[in-house]
Design a protein around this nucleic acid. Sequence first.
DNA 1: TTATATGCAAAGCTTTTGCGCTGGC
DNA 2: GCCAGCGCAAAAGCTTTGCATATAA
Lengths: 125, 125
Amino acid sequence: MTSQRRVIVQVLAESDDHPAAEDVYRRASRIEGRISLATVYRTMRLLEEAGILEKHDFGDGRARYEEIQRAHHDHLIDVDTGEVIEFVNEEIEDLQETVARELGYRLTGHRHELYGTRINKPEQD
Amino acid sequence: MTSQRRVIVQVLAESDDHPAAEDVYRRASRIEGRISLATVYRTMRLLEEAGILEKHDFGDGRARYEEIQRAHHDHLIDVDTGEVIEFVNEEIEDLQETVARELGYRLTGHRHELYGTRINKPEQD
DNA sequence: TTATATGCAAAGCTTTTGCGCTGGC
DNA sequence: GCCAGCGCAAAAGCTTTGCATATAA
């Protein structure tokens, strides 16, 4: 357990958004100057393989991470602002299982993101 | 309308899988030797912006394409073989709309892929 | 001490782009 | 003849990796 790994874990614990590797690197650098982007990538991979992190792709070309701690959820991405909203819908979760089973598959994972724009924006004028 | 674009469109029309740019390039090269990967990328982007192609990400680091011709569908990816199975589930589609609306959003798109392994593999022996 | 982790820089991969040339119309 | 489109090669952006050094245990 090196100081770098400690700091990365700390940063992730304190983050309630979905940072990219670069973001984690920037936040970690403020706490521990002696850290490199390569180490961040290496550690993120370890944490993901250990089942501690979840890796997402929100369509902007970089991987985005979050800790697996709370209950499972999916994401809705505001296409105007990039904001990420989490949601859970048990019905959808169940239907995914059903669909997979009917096709002869056991579900090992899924990727489910909604993209949308806010209705009734307040800052309209 | 150049010969290159004609060939790319032809390749896409003849493909019923979800080729990456490199695949399209390879298939097109067999028909028309004088074609470059850059042209494939440029044309794919045009076709996507024109609403003729749909761009997917199945988690292998490259973009995968398919023509928008049939009804909308989602994908189930066989994590063992990479095979891609298409499916439609209206209930899920409706629930996505509902979820977005409840969060104050109008849905502009979604990304929904299931990952799984076959049940009852024949080659289990 | 000794294996493991790190930093740095180079390289890998997919995708994009600058530029001079080609070829449809 | 013009100009959109092409090929080529370089570059861009994210991520991985080789290697010598540093550090935890």
